[in-house]
């Protein structure tokens, strides 16, 4: 083998090895860490995975925020305007969290309510995450379809 060929062979095999390792790692990490977003309607229809973590998107229902005085645990309802889902969260809420604001909560189902470990509200108060808007639109479409049945 000429030196040039040898050098190229080394370079090519290095590249292939690196790409293969990176691809395998990436595929593994992707399949493990996919996180789906569901609306309350979809959760109630049984589409959300049982017992495992997912994201719940929707609007904080007006007059639904409740907390025991002095406690960091807060209960509220997330709605897509068709179905409601009670949510419980312990901790400091984001600045923009308020009634009527669209949020995305990450957590899992527990005894009929959604136990959130993270609650995100977006920085732009007029902004509704595309996922939440879509989820609300989807719930609307599903209701219409049912109404016409």
């Amino acid at each position: 083998m000429t030196p040039t060929r040898k050098r190229r062979l080394i370079a090519v095999s290095l590249i292939l090895l690196a790409v293969a390792v990176a691809a395998a790692l990436t595929a593994l990490a992707l399949s493990r860490n996919m996180s789906y977003l569901f609306s309350p309607s979809e959760v109630l229809a049984g589409k959300a995975p049982d017992g495992s973590s997912f994201r719940l998107g929707g609007v904080v229902l007006e007059h639904s925020i409740q907390r025991a005085p002095g406690s960091l645990t807060v209960d509220f309802v997330v709605t897509d305007r068709f179905h409601d889902m009670p949510v419980q969260y312990t901790g400091v809420l984001p600045d923009l969290f308020r009634e009527g604001q669209s949020i995305i909560a990450t957590g899992r189902m527990q005894d009929g309510h959604f136990a959130a470990r993270e609650v995100l509200a977006k920085h732009d108060e007029t902004y509704m995450p595309k996922e939440v808007a879509d989820a609300i639109r989807k719930a609307e479409a599903a209701k219409k379809a049912r109404a016409s049945d």
Binding site: L25, T26, A29, L30, R32, N33, S35, Y36, L37, F38
Partner: peptide
Amino acid sequence: IGRVSVGPPYFGFVFPLL
């Protein structure tokens, strides 16, 4: 395949390894 996102766990796993 739905509203999927991969968050910090994905990046936090692959990036340090690379």
